[in-house]
């Protein structure tokens, strides 16, 4: 183990950072797109079904295939990787946010509207806070997927911890494979833990 750190220590830091970087940007984009999209879809329930079906379909494309498909359009490197992972992250966030918003008690919404909230106030002060636990569950799920799948991004030259694993595979070096895999697991668990804390902070008391 110590020999692994001695040999690959600095490389490990760089690759871990790349992994975090790719995952965070993909997930961030996913949240920025999926949450507002769900809010809009609430108003158009029929379109919502179609959009969610499309997002589900994207989810069924094998990760490696999706990454490969990106190459003709965006070349190799970080950009196609981020785009592919972003597409993957959409689905859990979209579906959870949509379900969470739909499940907000209709009486509460009716009452808030009847008391004179504008549509924007209704979304920001009632809908989203009340749907927060479900939205956050979707984000946590997406985060774990994205971190795990970002490993494959190395295949199209995006870097990250996947480099260790692929090198390990081609050179048949088990320590490299483990050296890539274990940090990914730790990273995923740590992210889930931190997002859990964030969820508790964002979830309003009383619900």
């Amino acid at each position: 183990m110590s020999t692994f750190f001695a040999q690959h220590g600095s490389e490990l830091l760089v690759k871990t950072w790349q992994q975090i970087y790719i995952s965070a940007i993909s997930l961030g984009l996913g949240i920025i797109v999926a949450v507002p999209l769900s809010v809009v879809l609430m108003k158009f329930k029929r379109i919502a079904k179609v959009v969610i079906a499309i997002a589900s379909m994207l989810q069924t494309i094998p990760a490696l295939a999706l990454l490969a498909i990106m190459i003709p359009f965006f070349g190799v490197g970080k950009v196609p990787a981020i785009i592919a992972l972003f597409l993957y992250s959409l689905m859990p966030i979209l579906r959870n946010t949509y379900v969470g918003l739909t499940d907000v008690n209709q009486d509460t919404i009716d009452s808030a509207r009847g008391l004179g909230m504008t549509n924007m106030q209704l979304i920001l002060k009632v809908d989203i806070p009340l749907a927060m636990p479900v939205i956050m569950a979707g984000i946590r799920l997406s985060a774990i997927y994205v971190i795990a799948w970002a490993t494959l991004a190395s295949y199209i030259g995006a870097g990250g911890l996947g480099d260790f694993i692929f090198n390990g595979l081609s050179l048949y070096q088990t320590d490299l494979i483990f050296g890539g895999t274990i940090p990914v697991i730790i990273l995923a668990l740590l992210t889930d833990y931190l997002l859990g804390k964030l969820e508790r902070k964002l979830t309003p008391k009383g619900i």
Binding site: N105, D107, S111, A112, G114, G116, T118, K205, G206
Partner: peptide, 22 residues
Amino acid sequence: PVNLRRHIGYVIQNNGLMPHMT
């Protein structure tokens, strides 16, 4: 409509209190 509603009290069956507010 928003302004109208703010000047008319509104009470519904299941109280309609905001569960996430004190």
